[in-house]
Amino acid sequence: SSSSSPVALPPFFMRGSIIQLADGELKRVEDLKTEDFIQSAEISSELKIDSSTVERIDSGQSPNAVVIQFSVGELKAQVCVEVLVEYPFFVFGQGWSSCCPDRTTQLFELSCAKLCVGDVCVSLTLRGLR
């Protein structure tokens, strides 16, 4: 079976990018806090915040890619995503984190911590999915 290529890093992770929260407030990407995601999801009629715990981090199919296995939500559903090593995830209570924080900082000037097994990331699911 073929797997999809890793997702390229989108422009909004660049330091200084303007992010609009659900209540209309504008913040820079580097200034976002855990509460911003929680409060925005509370307002949203379609999306809800879920916790996704990093279970495994393996090498991806290309040199700059990693496959991250998450355990998602109360159901602990196993979900794998393949991303570039510099792709940042938002860790609850910690902030932006990637598998290669040096590269994230180099490419996007976004300060990052190292993403590790056990970290709990902010993720989204659809409301009323179950």
């Binding site: 422009p11 990018s17 303007i18 949203s44 979900v79 938002f90 902010v122």
Partner: peptide
């Protein structure tokens, strides 16, 4: 001369991965 440019504004949810758990019902 630097012309003023409109700054792109991105929605908050675009920063968060959408991880839909597999439903087993």
């Amino acid at each position: 001369n630097v012309e003023p440019r409109s700054v792109p504004v991105f929605p908050w949810h675009s920063l968060v991965p959408f991880l839909a758990p597999t439903q087993s019902d």
